[in-house]
Structures are given as C-alpha cells and as structure tokens.
Amino acid sequence: NQASVVANQLIPIQTALTLVMMRSEVVTPVGIPAEDIPRLVSMQVNRAVPLGTTLMPDMVKGYA
C-alpha cells in the first residue's frame, strides 16, 4: 500500500508547508504520495487542513 501525505498539525489557510507539518501514512482514500513531501515544502495550502487530514492535490497551490 502506498503512503500518502497527512497533516501532522492544523495547517492554517495560506500557510507555506514545512517538513514538520507533514507525515506519511497509509490511508484511504489515497492522497498526495509521500515521496512528494520534498516537493511540497514551501508550497501553500489553499484551505485550512485539520490534524490527521490527508493532503489531496487540490489542497496545495501549484501542486496539481
């Protein structure tokens, strides 16, 4: 099973992502693949992302 990127904390809207905000976890449905974590650093979320939420491509500006 492929690991996805999951929020390690509440990430407020417009926040630039850092490594400490994300973790990898095998979840359903599958979100952004964990191997993309380095690419996500400094990208902004376009909505508030609660703790434990799987990051989906449409939540990160410039990802999809």
Results as ranks from 00 to 15, higher is better:
Arg47Lys: 14
Asp36Asn: 13
Arg23Ile: 06
Met59Glu: 01
Leu40Trp: 03
Gly62Pro: 05
Glu35Ser: 12
Ala64Arg: 09
Pro38Asp: 10
Gly31His: 02
Arg23Ala: 06
Asp58Met: 11
Gln2Thr: 14
Asn8Met: 07
Val6Leu: 09
Ala3Pro: 10
Pro12Met: 07
Asp58Asn: 12
Pro57Asn: 05
Val60Lys: 02
Val20Ile: 13
Glu25Cys: 08
Ala64Lys: 12
Gln44Cys: 15
Leu51Ser: 14
Met21Gly: 00
Val41Asn: 01
Asn8Ala: 15
Ala7Asn: 00
Val30Ala: 09
Asp36Phe: 13
Gln9Lys: 15
Ser4Gln: 00
Val49Leu: 09
Asn1Ala: 15
Pro33Phe: 08
Ile32Met: 02
Met22Ile: 09
Ala34Val: 08
Ala48Gly: 07
Glu35Phe: 09
Thr54Ile: 13
Gly62Lys: 06
Met43Ser: 06
Val49Glu: 03
Glu25Phe: 07
Val20Ala: 14
Ile11Ala: 01
Pro12Thr: 07
Met59Pro: 00
Val45Arg: 01
Leu17Gly: 03
Ala16Phe: 15
Arg39Met: 13
Thr54Ser: 04
Asp36Thr: 08
Val6Trp: 03
Val60Tyr: 02
Ile37Ala: 07
Thr28Ala: 12
Ser42Gln: 13
Arg39Trp: 10
Lys61Cys: 15
Thr54Tyr: 03
Gly52Glu: 02
Leu17Phe: 02
Val41Asp: 01
Thr54Leu: 04
Ser4Leu: 02
Ala3His: 14
Gln9Met: 14
Ile32Ala: 01
Val27Phe: 03
Ser24Cys: 08
Pro57Cys: 08
Val41Cys: 11
Thr54Pro: 06
Val60Pro: 00
Pro50Tyr: 13
Met56Gly: 04
Met21Gln: 02
Val30Phe: 14
Pro29Glu: 06
Asn46Ile: 10
Pro33Asp: 06
Pro38Val: 08
Ala34Phe: 06
Pro57Val: 05
Gln9Asn: 07
Val45Gly: 00
Leu10Asp: 13
Ala3Val: 07
Pro38Arg: 10
Glu35Leu: 13
Val41Ala: 05
Glu25Gly: 11
Met56Thr: 13
Leu10Pro: 11
Gln14Val: 05
Ala34Gln: 06
Gln2Asp: 13
Gly52Leu: 04
Pro33Ser: 09
Met59Gly: 03
Ile37Met: 13
Val45Phe: 01
Gly62Asp: 13
Pro57Ala: 11
Asp36Pro: 00
Leu19Ile: 09
